[in-house]
Structure formats: C-alpha cells, structure tokens
Design a protein around this nucleic acid. Structure first.
Lengths: 297, 297
DNA sequence: CGATCTTACGGGATTCGTAAACATA
DNA sequence: TATGTTTACGAATCCCGTAAGATCG
C-alpha cells in the first residue's frame, strides 16, 4: 500500500523509453524485476498505466495524465534530498551566530569572507549584541553559536573556546601618555576616562580592575557605542579603554594605542553553544576556522 | 542510498510529536523500529536530524530547515497518489470522445448531464466531426472513444457497439407528404430534396439507397450543416432526410417528420475505440451508460 | 521465429518486533 | 529510579536475478 520512489522512477523510465527492456538497463535492473515494479505500482494506484503486449508498450490515457505529475513530485523530492545532502556535508547552509559588536566589526567580517571563499553557498545570520544578550540568544537557540565576553559556567552552555582579549588604552597623539611604552593602573586613575556604558563586558572588567586596585576612575563620559568613545578621545575629552581587537581604533592617525601594565585588564572571551545541540556541518567548519584564528596551532 | 517515503513520514512524525514513543504509536510501529528508520534517514542524508537523549528529542537546526521541505514534498506526493487513485476508481478523470454532430447535439449532452450527476468530478473533452474524422481521431488516440456512422472493419479499431439510426424525411407542415403516414423511395425521387453535403454518413446512405433503387434524386440544395438543411426545408425549398435523433427538427412546429418505407434508409452507427488500448475507468463507466441508452436491457 | 513481456522460484537483503541494555533527569 | 532511547537478534517480508513460459508481429 506504500508508494515507493523506486516504482515511480521505474514508471518514468518505461514511459520515456517506451520499452521495459531499455528501461531496465537504464535502471540497472533485470527486466522481470521491472515488470514486477510496474505491476506493483499499478496495483497500489489501482489503474493500468501501460497498454503492453509482447511487441509494444504505450501509456494509457491515465498513465499519460499521471506521468507529468509523478515526474514533478519525484523531481522535487530528489531536489530536497540534494539540498539535504548539501546541508549534511557542509557545502551549504546558514551559520547563525551572535557576537559582541567588537568581533562583529573586526574578526567576523574577515572570517565570513574567508568562509565564503571556501564555501560559496554558505549563508550567514549575524546578531551583534552585548554579552548577556548573546548568551540568551544561544540559550533560546535563536543562534547556534555565540562569541561573547565574560566568564560563564552554565549547565546549559558548552564553551568551545575560552580566551581573553587584551584591553588597551586609547589616547590622542598629543596626550602625555603618548610618549610612554605602557601605562599603569595609577596612570589611568589620574586622567579623565571615557568608558563604555555599564553592562558591557569591557566596562565590567575595567570597574573590577579599579576596585581591586583600590582606586576610582574619573569618568568624563559614558557612551554606549565604541565609535562614540573613539570620537570623544579624538576630541581630547579623555582616554578610553578598549579591546585590542577593536576595529574602531585602527587606521586612526590621530590616536595612539598603549598596552596597560596590569593583569586584570583582560577581557575573557568565549565561543559558546547550547549543550546537547548538534551544530550544522557548515557551522562546524566555521567554528574550526574561527578557532584557527583565535588560537592558531 | 534510496530515499524512502516511510522514513520521511517517520521523520515528520517524530518532529511533530517530539518523541520517538508517541511517533511510533502514531505510525503503528514499534519504537525501536522507528529509531532505526530515523538513523537510516540520517545516514542517507548524512546529517543529524534530532538531538536526543533519553529524556528529550529536539530538531537540530538542519532538521528544522529540512522539515518544511520534506513535509511539502511528501504532501505533494501523497496528493498525486490520491489523484491517481481517483483516476483509478473512476471517481474523476476526463472522457475524451469524438462523435458525429447529430449525437453531439442530441444524446451526448443529456448523457453528459447524467454522468456528471453520478460522478461530479468527471470532465469531458468532446470533438464533433464527420464519420471519417471521428475514426481518424480514435486511430491517432486524440480521443479514447468515438461514436460514428458507417460500417468499418479495421484491425486497429475495436467496435464496442454497432447499431443503426433510422433516417426520416423532414418536410414543411404544408407539404403534400404531410398527409401521409409514411413516404417511399419513389415518393422521395419525385420531389426536390435538400441533402447534406457529400462526405457525411447520411449522404452516403441516401446516395446508396437511390442507386440500389434505380432512381436518382432531384437535389435542390447541398448544405454542409443540418441546421441549414432544416432552414431550407422550412423555407419550402424541398424535403430533407435526416437521422431520427437529429436535434435540429425537434420542437419545430412548422415541420413534419415521416418515416421512410425502405430498409436501406438506416444509417449504421458504431461506438469504437483503438484496439489494445485500455479505457480510463471514468470512460468505461461512460461507455456503460451510453450503451444503456443505445441498447437498453 | 524472434524479440519482448510475464510468471515461477530460490537466495539475499531489508525491516519488523521482542527483549535486554543503556542513559538521563 | 523511572522514563525513554538504543542495541541485539531472530523471524517475516520484500525484492532481486535467473530461468522457463507466453504472446504478438
């Protein structure tokens, strides 16, 4: 009673070749086996599909009517299978990722280009969000992986990679710190600072470092976006503290970047996924290439 | 390597119920068998479709992407099967028939109404043509059955029914013959006749009858269409000879119909199909109902 | 009589169900 | 521990190929 794709393929082959023998050889099948398949199909459908004698094979009117319908159905089905196989071997698919704006503007675009060059049919769905939101998106499975900051140990989250991003001081070319190789915590406590808003992972690290160091920063400005912070620094409003990878400070001739001489100025970063969830093959290769960048070798 | 509809149904059932056990009972299958089906499907596609542990079953991103595609393909395929079954049991389909204009305007419309009442989803493809063309259409399989006139014995044609149509004289109410019950061959030879054109089956019979009777008709007019012949008769141009079933003469108060007292004035009619061709089930029931009318009992 | 479809039958692969093992909340 | 999935295995079924039979041109 169950319709079988093989029987449909047999029907189409016989209809196209007009012969059981030729169709059988096309299907790499013995001719009697083909007879049985056609008969079975005719029985399940309850209608004679071919008028045949030992000399000629011809579609019945019903068969002629059914042929294009079955051809289309079979074609669609096979196309879905091809699509599915492409998803399965990672030659197509969509990488769904949430990441911090810093990465969304720095490593991620370059990596996407790299992946697209290797896998032309790869698609991307990128969300940029602050650390807490990234984690939520992963937990709710709105994305498959997240590149986020902050330490997290959650039973529902797998950490595929944990590392840290060096924080650096960003200052105008004419600033007093520009003549030094490095700056210290007390240096930073002595000048006005432009710090990103509460709730960002960078701000959490900076606040923690000052607290444990026993001193308080002088906050000149609390912008939400890094781009704003950079503009404020360029305008001489103060010094800001950003991840070394921040795209915003590159190719800015009026700015200087100096490492901070303090162990606490490391922003932890993590590549995460939901525990127990299989990543799509395309995403697995994406992760592999991302890890190659984050931790080469 | 062959995609199986059963596995697709299994995939959809598990995706919808979120449980192997519930899906198995819906599919009337043991639960282990379902596990095997899903694993087989995952192997043929080459991708994990469900993330599952002993407690939870959830679609992978790839599975979620594939689900609607496979649902649609399966639905289409099953719909085609339903259509095919409907064709197979005669509850739908198209009756392709060619017939003489006489029948196309008389028995056929009534029969079509009758069949449509019995089989609402029946469709019709009707060609009206003179006898020779009807036979050609059947031979070329442009129609499945033909209702035609004339005797034919052809190896390629099966005669499903053979009968004859009485020919009658049609004349104006004021004509001299109107006072008689019947007319004879010599009567017809004595008055101007309106005869349908050469090539029609009626004309062939009339010509044959006059020839064998040893007399010649006086032809006043040779219209192609019966409707024209009737109009000519109504105008007093002469008497015409038509099949008794001709629709054109019914409900014409100014005309009279008289039987012709001569055995040769019978037009043979035949219901034919191409030899070796199976008729669609809907057409078989149509034929049965037609025969019931042509030869009741 | 020759080419082609159909039927018959034995072997092999597929698939099912039962039972036991395994895993996780 | 209890629920639910996976593994193992024997039995039934399905399906193919070979060989013999039937049929039409």
């Amino acid at each position: 009673m169950d319709l079988n794709l093989r029987d449909i393929r047999a029907f189409i082959a016989v209809a196209q070749t007009g012969s059981f023998t030729r169709a059988a050889s096309r299907l790499h099948l013995s001719q009697p086996a083909l007879t049985v398949q056609i008969r079975r199909l005719e029985e399940t459908v309850g209608v004679r599909l071919f008028d045949r004698n030992s000399r000629n094979v011809a579609l019945t009117p019903t068969g002629r009517e059914l042929l294009p319908l079955l051809q289309k159905s079979l074609h669609d089905m096979e196309h879905v299978l091809i699509d599915a196989r492409a998803l399965g071997d990672g030659s197509s698919g969509t990488v769904r990722i949430a990441c911090l704006p810093t990465f969304a503007a720095s490593v991620l675009p370059e990596l996407i280009q790299q992946v697209k060059a290797a896998v032309p049919r790869a698609g991307f769905h990128v969300r940029d969000a602050v650390a807490g939101v990234v984690e939520t998106l992963v937990r709710h499975e709105e994305v498959d992986i997240g590149l986020t900051g902050g330490e997290l140990s959650d039973a529902e989250i797998d950490v595929l990679y944990a590392g840290a991003d060096q924080l650096v001081a960003v200052l105008p070319a004419g600033h007093a710190f520009a003549r030094r190789k490095r700056v210290s915590l007390t240096d930073l406590a002595s000048v006005p600072l432009v710090l990103t808003a509460q709730g960002t992972s960078v701000r959490a690290v900076v606040d923690g470092a000052f607290t444990s160091g026993g001193c308080a920063p002088e906050i000149a400005c609390e912008p939400t976006y890094m781009m704003t912070a950079v503009a404020m620094v360029r305008a001489g409003l103060g010094v800001t503290i950003l991840p070394a990878s921040a795209r915003e400070v590159r190719a800015e001739p009026e700015l200087r970047v100096r490492p901070i001489d303090h162990d606490a100025f490391l922003r932890p970063i993590a590549l995460i996924k939901k525990r127990g969830r299989t990543l799509p093959p395309i995403t697995q290769t994406f992760v592999a290439m991302l890890l190659e960048r984050l931790a080469p070798g």
